[in-house]
Amino acid sequence: MLVKFNVNGDTVEVDVEPRVSLADCLRDVLHLTGTHLGCEHGVCGACTVIIDGEAVRSCLTLAVQADGATIVTVEGLSNDNALTPLQAAFRKHHALQCGFCTPGMITTAHALLTEEPDADAERVRDVLSGNICRCTGYVPIVEAVLEARAAYANPDKADAS
């Protein structure tokens, strides 16, 4: 089936089997391998992407469901110049070790802070509890997300300059 959507600012058209997940489409067809697959049944959150502003499990979404949507993956939250304030906060707080869950953490936190730049620690923990990290114990991840709030309160600063 032909599916057309916008990903990270580019409009793309792909021809996929109806059974292909959005995650597999992003990774295998569009070569956006930053989106990771940790469980393929919607529990671990590593595959989280932002569809029309909402954090969504791309392993539980069919590619054909994304027709007409605007998708942002972890690659779309980055640029070549510098880390974004959210990414820099992750680095400063050592909020990643093996790095496998990190793309899902970044996309989830970005979607949260975009909507709720004043989210408190409890809210951050609640939202991130849908993403599994086996390395860090989450403490530094929560610290990083809380620190990044300031940049989202002033949206001009949420992108890297």
């Binding site: 690659e75 880390l83 680095r91």
Partner: peptide, 9 residues
């Protein structure tokens, strides 16, 4: 971190 945070691992 520079690669992991940007989905470039």
């Amino acid at each position: 971190d520079l690669r992991f945070l940007r989905g470039r691992g």
